[in-house]
Amino acid sequence: MKLRWFKVVVFPACLVPLGYLGWKAYSGNLGANPIEAITHSTGDWTLVFLLATLAITPLRKLTGQHWLIRFRRMLGLFAFFYGLLHFLTYIWLDKFFDLHEMLADVAKRRFITAGLTGFVLLIPLAITSTSGWIRRLGGRRWNLLHRLIYFSAMAGVIHYLWLVKADLRKPLEYAFVLALLLGYRLVVWLAPKVGRSVSIPSGRVEVSEG
């Protein structure tokens, strides 16, 4: 019951960045280069939502707050949503549907190649995010497929690292958080093999790993 109310709050909260961007556009406060401002904002939020999605499992395991899992799909879909806006900004506002130029970009600009990789990897995850698809694929295969988010987030961080001119501080902050989140999984994965820990739940049967 309570959780339902919480969801009612979290969902609009996830739309706040978009609302803020829209408000700034409406009031003419996007600065001197509005298209760049939109590209950067949507890119930042894609990455934030990706990392938030990846933070659910560690948080849940470390705190024992298992209800957190109920928000993972929503956060993941918001990552896809902001990624889509980011991609559309590029196609529409930045390149103005110039296919030739976009193809040249994808082939020649490694930061675009990395970004596109990150986004394309999210598409099957968004499609198979429904309960129907989880059933159809089976928990195990679904879990395996959804590990693609690791690579999407990595591609997103690499995309950011490759696009900045000199100041690597912000992309490195994201890289650090991602390293923690993926490092946690590596430890969990390796621990039983080392034969030490028995306390780490394997969680194979539920659709909750990742």
Binding site: L21, W23, L85
Partner: peptide, 8 residues
Amino acid sequence: TAIAGAAA
């Protein structure tokens, strides 16, 4: 410049 779904 219409911004996807956003205000006016």
